[in-house]
Write a protein that binds this DNA or RNA. Sequence first.
DNA 1: CTCTATTGCGAACGTTTATTCGCATTCAAT
DNA 2: ATTGAATGCGAATAAACGTTCGCAATAGAG
Lengths: 228, 228
Amino acid sequence: MRKKPVQQRSQQMVDALIEAAGQVIAERGLEHFTTVQVAERANVSVGSLYQYFANKDALLAALVDRLNREMGEMVSRIAPSLLQADPQTLVRGLLHAAFDFLGGREGLYMELLRNWYRLDIQRSLHRFEQQMLEITRAYALTHVADLRLDHGPAKGFVIINSVVFTLLRYLSLPNRALFDRDRLVEELTTMVAGYLSAGRPRNPRSKAATVTRAKPGTGRSKRNPVRI
Amino acid sequence: MRKKPVQQRSQQMVDALIEAAGQVIAERGLEHFTTVQVAERANVSVGSLYQYFANKDALLAALVDRLNREMGEMVSRIAPSLLQADPQTLVRGLLHAAFDFLGGREGLYMELLRNWYRLDIQRSLHRFEQQMLEITRAYALTHVADLRLDHGPAKGFVIINSVVFTLLRYLSLPNRALFDRDRLVEELTTMVAGYLSAGRPRNPRSKAATVTRAKPGTGRSKRNPVRI
DNA sequence: CTCTATTGCGAACGTTTATTCGCATTCAAT
DNA sequence: ATTGAATGCGAATAAACGTTCGCAATAGAG
């Protein structure tokens, strides 16, 4: 931030600018997000904008920061109520919450998430993963038997990204007639809950027909020992 | 295409332009993909570019078309060799193929996939899903017992998007030290193979503690009957 | 009230880029 | 060889946008 707002009016203006930035992005998309638009929307001049934000990116960063905080609070709010449930219910509850969250704010979260690789949403995603890991850990204290807890970082990564991006793509779908939201949540719940409670193949028969390596399309060399 | 190339030299030029477009995008990213750059790279003038492509988007569309075809051929090429394997091996083989494919072309596929929502990659993704469903169907003819085949469109959607975007995000990771590629493939294999061969909860105990709905963060109303 | 630091303004500037247009060059049919 | 169509060129045009700068309005201390 180029200058610190000391008087009250300027502080309000900074808030209004961040808010307006969110509105513009939600309505017009990140591509058409311009400083002039934001200034107009906030009933502020462009010059004033640049008095408090070094440039466009700084404004965007401030917005992302604010939303990041919101997300953290959301997770902390709903997590405790789910710790008593069984794994399936926990996963389903988190999924519904994620659905509601991503769809909120007039699609602002979605638009930002679509552009995850340009923004430092990388950090947000990572933080989100961490939060989920904490929930998992807290959950483990009450349901030790149900889950295998030797999760390396890979499992969390797989789950978070599978869920978030699948939801994102579903919400971006022009035609949602093929299957509805609840169906999707159920499918994801099945997949994730199964994955969580199963570190190894479940079907007794497939245990016998062990790891017969397939020839990959493009030949590759040294591969790690298969730790399942 | 604004004008059809009838002579041989112009046909070559069109090809060169599409090829150059891919190179520019792979090297500079879609953001810095400009018509002048493409023309220079193809040793062609900008004016000539606009003689065969109505605008920048048309050029991009032509590129996507070409890559879409490539992808289809890739899948058709590797699919037959996997039909004999067990589900785990099938999934693992497809995953490795997807990994190799996405990483190819100097990151061109990745850069395009990152921008999936701006391009009509929607169509490509959908086509990819269809292909996967065909493979699954073909696979079912030989391994009837191992899989539940009442897959609605939702299951395919979940799998495709989970896998593709998780791979995409992994490949976009600045620091890949946390876990390596093979580890990721194994995790995804576990998850997907488990999901495919299990339509309902596997743990006998969790069958008893049935669908105790969690209160979602934001209250929502009529929900569909839970078809698992 | 007076004075100064803070705040606010928005036209103007410079850069970047897509797209066009008038003219030159090449092809291929006669 | 001639000629008309096809092809190729790249400076010029125009629109969009981020950012600056000089000046006006305002707040709050003394």
